[in-house]
Computed example of a mutant assay.
Amino acid sequence: MTTLLLTLLLTLAQALSPGARPLPPPLVVARWWDPPPTPYAAGHRGVDLAAPVGAELRAVGPGRVHHAGPVAGRGVLSLTLPGGLRTTYEPVRPLVTEGEEVTTGQVVAVLTEGTHCAGPCLHWGLLRGTTYLNPLALLPRPTPRLLPDSAAYSP
């Protein structure tokens, strides 16, 4: 599938289903998840979502703040979620502190300037233990709807 088609499908899925998203819809993917073939190989261990500097970022699920502060000169927020998952947001200015409980949809950070993308973007990651996962899997799935085949009807 082309990037445009995947972006359109993602936008449609977001529009059809309510739920926890790190940013308000539509989510615009600037760079897709591209897991490395081995733990130390090159790859993209998250997704980049285009958004303006100052955008409010929300918790994608209930949990606890694992880390809120600088890592390698960038602001990073990491939340521990149920089921052994941990999600990360960068570059951000955290609005919560380590150990604090958060709720789904709670504003937890503000997007800041970064150098990861050509324009402003949120790098959103997801881990289970030390294994990186596609964070888009956290988004709610749309409810399938069947439409009648217009060719089956004749006036």
Results as ranks from 00 to 15, higher is better:
89 Y>Q: 08
109 A>L: 05
77 L>G: 08
134 N>P: 01
38 T>W: 11
43 G>M: 05
137 A>G: 08
36 P>D: 11
132 Y>F: 13
128 R>I: 04
133 L>Y: 09
40 Y>M: 10
112 T>K: 07
65 V>G: 10
140 P>W: 02
63 G>F: 03
110 V>T: 10
83 G>Q: 11
80 T>N: 12
54 G>S: 07
115 T>S: 11
142 P>T: 11
76 V>Y: 03
26 P>T: 02
125 G>S: 06
100 E>T: 02
46 G>T: 06
64 R>E: 15
133 L>S: 09
23 L>S: 04
80 T>M: 07
37 P>V: 09
55 A>F: 01
118 A>T: 15
87 T>I: 06
150 S>C: 11
84 G>A: 06
109 A>M: 04
111 L>V: 00
31 R>N: 11
27 L>I: 12
105 G>V: 13
14 Q>W: 04
46 G>F: 03
78 S>A: 13
143 T>Y: 08
53 V>S: 02
33 W>D: 01
47 V>R: 03
81 L>I: 06
7 T>K: 09
64 R>A: 09
89 Y>A: 05
118 A>N: 11
132 Y>D: 07
18 P>V: 14
66 H>C: 02
136 L>A: 10
138 L>Q: 02
32 W>L: 10
82 P>K: 07
69 G>H: 12
134 N>D: 15
39 P>G: 10
57 L>D: 00
47 V>A: 09
21 R>S: 14
37 P>D: 07
150 S>V: 14
67 H>G: 07
91 P>N: 14
3 T>K: 07
45 R>M: 08
132 Y>I: 01
74 R>S: 04
35 P>A: 09
49 L>T: 02
76 V>N: 03
129 G>T: 14
20 A>N: 13
25 P>Y: 00
102 V>I: 12
127 L>D: 07
49 L>Y: 04
10 L>H: 06
108 V>R: 01
92 V>Y: 00
21 R>W: 07
152 A>M: 05
27 L>E: 10
150 S>Q: 09
62 P>I: 03
41 A>R: 11
7 T>C: 12
49 L>C: 02
13 A>T: 07
55 A>M: 05
21 R>Q: 08
59 A>C: 12
147 L>Y: 12
39 P>A: 11
22 P>V: 06
150 S>L: 15
134 N>Y: 04
129 G>N: 08
56 E>N: 05
137 A>E: 12
133 L>D: 10
131 T>D: 13
96 V>Y: 11
138 L>F: 07
92 V>R: 02
19 G>P: 06
19 G>H: 03
26 P>G: 03
121 C>E: 03
78 S>T: 14
103 T>M: 12
4 L>G: 05
51 A>R: 00
138 L>W: 04
95 L>N: 04
85 L>N: 07
6 L>Y: 04
152 A>S: 14
60 V>F: 03
130 T>W: 05
134 N>S: 07
47 V>I: 14
44 H>I: 08
116 H>P: 00
15 A>L: 14
103 T>S: 15
154 S>A: 15
